[in-house]
Simulated assay, not measured.
Amino acid sequence: MFFSVVIPTYNRKPILEKCLRSLEQQVIPPNSPIEGYEVVVVDDGSTDETVGWLRANAAALPHVRLFLQDHQGPAAARNLGVEKATGDTIIFIDSDLVVTEVFLQAHAAALVEGTKRLGSDRLFTYGRVINTCNFDDPTAEPFKVTDFSAAYFATGNVAIARHWLEQAGLFDTRFQLYGWEDLELGVRLKNLGLTLVKCPAAVGYHWHPPFALSQIPNLIDKEIQRGRMGVLFYQKHPTWDVRLMIQMTWLHRVLWGVLSLGGRLNERTLAPLLQWLIDRGKPQLALEIARVFLNWYNVQGVYAAYDEFLASKA
């Protein structure tokens, strides 16, 4: 098999450098089913020095192929990456993911074993993603309970035969705001009968800066965007499972309404507590507490977008 690692990126130059260097350090044993690999980077209209850095360091990144597009979002970027890829097997990762040296081999071994076990390539492998804010040494982070994911198809770390993506129809480029474009494609792949095969040996370390109060406006905006894209997801797949995923149920409305005291526990009222935790070296705990009001914003965003949708149909 020939791997095409597809990476969309937008203004993430510092961590992208680590991401791409980790992919250049892959160890592929002589008996590996991997015949070769490429790294297809799609720059989604970055305004930092991403493109200049990639071009200046092309000799040090021999597996990288760079393509450019205007800022259209990750769905369009991933579709362009698949279109330009030469491999028969696609691996999706995000540009803020740093992988171990056995990353590609682990996916390959799991794909081969899964195909033998199922008697078909109607599957994809899902690697482990570990969240970290350690920029200097991201791979030092241990796996935590909060790193567990029950998602069926999340593009942070998956490998899949290219023809299944093409048969499913690739990503829906109407998902231009934050969220859901990968899980929506996952619904279509599930309808094709693909099996998720866990691949914990294919580890990616997802870096993000330590939580700070200055990030809250952007996080709130993302939750509102995620709510709007969730309604698009539900329009395409009006099922109870999707309603649960996008938090468009009375249960979620009551849960986050109660936990946030009807929105009274918010970015303003909780700011002193969050800053106190950050000052004591507990930014992750502060973020988990902030998720109470972030989820409340998400649920509010979902229902606001759904009301707009219903009004447009009236």
Results as ranks from 00 to 15, higher is better:
R226K: 12
K313D: 12
Y306D: 13
L111S: 06
D70M: 11
V6S: 01
P283D: 04
T269Q: 03
L165V: 08
K18V: 14
V129M: 13
Y10N: 12
T125W: 03
Q300K: 11
A304H: 11
L118N: 12
S95N: 06
E17Y: 07
G169K: 00
R253V: 09
Q72S: 09
L265K: 14
F211M: 03
F233K: 01
G114D: 10
T173S: 15
A60R: 11
F124R: 00
S46W: 02
N266W: 00
L61M: 10
L170M: 08
F211P: 06
L255C: 13
P142S: 08
R243H: 02
A161I: 04
M1C: 03
V197Y: 07
G52L: 08
V242M: 12
D96N: 09
F309M: 12
R12Q: 15
Q176V: 08
E223Y: 11
A201M: 12
A201F: 14
T195C: 14
I246D: 11
T89A: 04
Q275T: 02
A290K: 07
D48K: 00
T269F: 00
A110K: 15
A154N: 14
V102L: 15
H107Q: 15
H237C: 07
V27R: 15
V145F: 04
L270G: 03
R243F: 01
Q26M: 10
G119C: 05
E288M: 14
G127T: 07
L165N: 07
L265Q: 12
K144G: 07
N31C: 13
Y152K: 06
V98M: 06
I216P: 02
F92T: 08
H252V: 13
G281T: 09
S32H: 12
R12P: 10
A58D: 00
I216W: 01
R174M: 05
T9K: 01
V292S: 08
E101F: 04
A76V: 06
L287K: 14
T139I: 15
F293D: 11
G169P: 00
V112W: 01
A77S: 11
D44K: 05
P142D: 05
G257F: 04
G119D: 02
A202W: 09
I7G: 01
A58Y: 07
N266K: 02
S312A: 15
A161N: 07
S46Q: 01
I28M: 08
A58R: 06
K116D: 07
L185S: 02
D172P: 07
F211Q: 02
F103H: 12
E267M: 00
L251K: 13
V98Q: 04
M245D: 08
T155K: 08
E113N: 10
D48W: 01
V129Y: 03
E49P: 09
T132A: 11
L16S: 04
A76Q: 06
T249D: 06
A140G: 14
C133L: 10
D137S: 12
D44P: 04
G127C: 09
P74V: 01
I90H: 00
D182P: 04
L54W: 05
T269E: 09
Y234Q: 09
S260F: 00
A311K: 14
Q69W: 01
V42P: 07
W53Q: 11
I224R: 11
W53L: 12
M248C: 08
A212T: 15
A304C: 11
E166K: 01
F2W: 05
Y178S: 06
W164D: 00
A76K: 07
V302S: 03
